[in-house]
């Protein structure tokens, strides 16, 4: 269609103007050659500007179909559920409803978000984005967040604001970064993708500063904290339909599987000291609990309250302490 051709040409001119490579003489001649060209150029440039400027306001209703007028919501909702089936869990996670944490500094009171089987993405007015994992709880009072479960944070650094996040005994502050924070009954795991954060706690001798590429694990029973290199791509790996571990205690792996997999999973005390390294896949056609059992040569048994991982009785030998990604 003619309009499309003009719009494509206008987009090319806009790209050159933006990149400061435009020949203004040639641009003027193009504009003069057809009165529709200037309109098309306006449309291209304004579409970019509006997308950028409206992003904070738009992030919400885009994902939350129920925010749209009824006539518009039904068709996308149907296609989205089809899409969800097609793409499995990774799709489902990002299809979750989004909310805005209206960052109104003077408003008292707290807000709470709790997820069930699905993740939820939250967008704050200041540009902070949070992907709250399934079966997780996040509360907010002013600039203070409290997390139980798992969430991936993308927080723009702003010196005028002191966002802090409490997870169990630890408090994360001085944030300008992208990171994944997990709190499983007080056991804290923190993986920094970019930027840096400060971590403090009552039982820590001093506050720690963690940089991008570092990971932290805190065990509440011993108050031991371990800082090491992060696995590449580990931040928010659940969003990509997988869970990756390096030398991670089995109970933590089981807690993740319970969150992202098919319900409660307990680890028998006899093997609670074992560690796992490897990648488990989530979503349609994958049972991470069974995969874990197979990788580590353990038994997966069903009990009243879900599944239990325990040492294999016969024929398998001792449980391995390391697995490999299975495909």
């Amino acid at each position: 269609m003619t309009d499309d051709i003009i719009l494509d040409a206008a987009a090319q001119w806009h790209g050159q103007v933006t990149a400061s490579t435009v020949d203004w003489d040639a641009f003027t001649l193009w504009l003069e050659s057809d009165p529709r060209n200037a309109r098309a150029y306006d449309a291209v440039a304004l579409a970019e500007t509006l997308l950028d400027d409206c992003a904070p306001a738009l992030a919400v209703p885009l994902a939350a179909n129920d925010d749209m007028p009824a006539g518009e919501a039904s068709a996308p909702a149907r296609s989205w559920s089809r899409l969800a089936t097609a793409t499995g869990l990774a799709g489902l996670l990002t299809l979750a409803a989004a909310l805005v944490l209206a960052l109104l500094p003077h408003r008292p009171g707290s807000q709470t978000w709790q997820t069930g089987d699905r993740a939820q993405s939250l967008a704050m007015a200041d540009g902070t984005r949070i992907a709250l994992a399934p079966r997780s709880l996040l509360t907010r009072e002013g600039d203070h967040l409290t997390l139980t479960g798992d969430a991936v944070f993308a927080v723009p650094h702003r010196p005028d604001r002191t966002l802090t996040i409490t997870a169990g005994e630890l408090t994360v502050s001085d944030i300008g970064t992208h990171f994944d924070l997990r709190n499983d009954d007080g056991t804290i795991r923190l993986t920094i993708d970019e930027g840096q954060v400060r971590v403090a706690g009552a039982r820590l001798a001093r506050a720690l500063t963690l940089m991008g590429g570092q990971a932290l694990a805190f065990d509440p029973r011993t108050a031991q904290i371990v800082v090491g290199p992060a696995r590449a791509g580990a931040t928010g790996d659940w969003q990509r339909g997988q869970l990756s571990y390096r030398d991670t205690p089995l109970p933590l792996v089981a807690a993740d599987i319970a969150r992202y997999g098919r319900g409660p999973l307990r680890v028998d005390d006899a093997i609670a000291q074992q560690h796992f390294s490897g990648t488990l896949r989530l979503g349609t056609g994958h049972d991470p609990a069974q995969d874990l059992a197979r990788l580590m040569a353990l038994d997966l048994a069903m009990s009243g309250h879900g599944a239990v991982l325990r040492a294999a009785h016969q024929g398998h030998g001792a449980g391995s302490t390391a697995g490999r990604p299975s495909d």
Binding site: C54, A57, L58, M68, E72, P76
Partner: peptide, 21 residues
Amino acid sequence: ARQEAALMRRAIATLPPGARR
């Protein structure tokens, strides 16, 4: 700003699902 956002929201709502996502 809200009106602009409303315009964009309407436009985005009518995108094909894959393109919108």
